[in-house]
């Protein structure tokens, strides 16, 4: 059956169901149980934002709290994956990747290739991404482009609870290393989610709104901004925007994006990451290279600026791509047509 649950609950449910289904699934991370070795209650936290709360009661020692040693435990998750387990490591914030990056991009990502196809590393690294939490420069980054750049990694970023559950189950069952990016400002968002386990295949973008005039491509939180922009465009300007949620950033569903661009002739890419060498650049460049003839206007990018994430709410609010900025970018693609 289906009922409404939050993004956070959907992730918890996916972990719970996969741990129940497959004894090789283990969870490790800082405070994912909470209170390990402390005099108070066991299962004190369930993760810093409570995503894994309650799983310890069901699965016990298959959840491992770790010392504050990202290199060691993320590496251990990768090593265990190469030895037949299906570990899900939680790295609290993607900003902390810096301290364990070698294990991800030199070890997990490369085993299969370096070892001539004779290894598989079914590890999932769950991590929080994104701004809007008033958490400043070291707890707010998107950083997804750093990971999509690396062959051997899969990079996922769901925008809603339904996708979060299906994509996380797919990530756990997948035989390649997956960086699973959870937008911290979506944890409370709810939608209809089946109680049963299900998977969403990687490399399948979701057209969340159909339209004929302009294609808006995004992922994560900014999908919702893009939808807001599309509603405004429809209401005020009678422009029907097609909004595509990439869902999986590597692999990426080029076909769906390019078919849409060929249909609409206009492309706006919205990426909460910084602009240089981002998904936004990637998609704009791909469109210019592959469907140039179909373009009626230059592709537009709406991204965070090339600055660290600021702390003060007044600054952070203008840092994150807004619906207004997306509308303005669409305006640039349509204005060209009118001027022609």
């Amino acid at each position: 059956m289906t009922r409404k649950i939050s993004y956070k609950t959907a992730i918890n449910e996916a972990l719970d169901q996969e741990m129940t289904r497959d004894p090789s699934v283990i969870l490790l991370g800082e405070d994912i149980v909470g209170g390990a070795g402390a005099p108070g209650e066991a299962d004190a936290w369930g993760g810093v934002l409570g995503v894994t709360k309650g799983l310890y009661a069901k699965h016990g020692d298959r959840l491992l709290d770790t010392p504050l040693s990202e290199s060691a435990y993320v590496g251990a998750a990768i090593g265990a994956a190469a030895c037949g387990m299906r570990p899900v490591a939680e790295l609290m914030f993607i900003d902390f990747m810096g301290v364990c990056f070698d294990q991800i991009f030199n070890q997990a990502a490369k085993f299969r290739y370096m070892f001539g196809g004779k290894a598989k590393t079914p590890v999932v690294i769950r991590t929080m991404v994104g701004a809007g939490f008033r958490a400043a420069a070291q707890h707010s980054q998107m950083l997804t482009p750093i990971f999509t750049h690396i062959p051997g990694l899969k990079v996922i970023c769901p925008s809603n609870a339904y996708d979060a559950k299906g994509l996380l189950i797919q990530s756990i069952r997948d035989d390649d290393p997956v960086i699973f990016c959870e937008h911290k400002n979506l944890y409370g968002s709810e939608c209809a989610v089946p109680t049963e386990s299900y998977t969403i295949p990687f490399g399948e973008a979701n057209i969340v709104r159909e339209g004929k005039d302009v294609t808006i491509v995004s992922y994560g939180l900014t999908v919702h901004r893009a939808l807001d922009a599309a509603e405004s465009l429809a209401r005020k300007d009678r422009i029907e925007a097609e909004v595509i949620d990439l869902r999986t950033l590597s692999p990426i569903d080029w076909d769906t994006v390019m078919e849409s661009v060929e249909k609409t002739g206009r492309l706006v890419v919205v990426d909460e990451a910084h602009p240089r060498c981002s998904l936004a650049c990637d998609i704009a460049a791909y469109a210019a290279q592959h469907v140039f003839e179909a373009l009626k206007a230059a592709p537009q990018m709406v991204t965070a600026p090339h600055t660290p994430t600021p702390f003060s709410p007044s600054l952070e609010d203008i840092y994150i791509p807004s619906a207004d900025a997306i509308v303005a970018a669409v305006g640039k693609t349509i204005a060209r047509v009118k001027a022609a």
Partner: peptide, 25 residues
């Protein structure tokens, strides 16, 4: 044999994972 490694010290976390897998099994 989990691999020679071009990154110095990189094998240490990996072997912790291997040992963890053995412990679970």
């Amino acid at each position: 044999m989990m691999g020679a490694n071009g990154i110095l010290g990189a094998g240490a976390p990996l072997i912790c994972g291997a040992a963890l897998a053995s412990k679970f099994r």
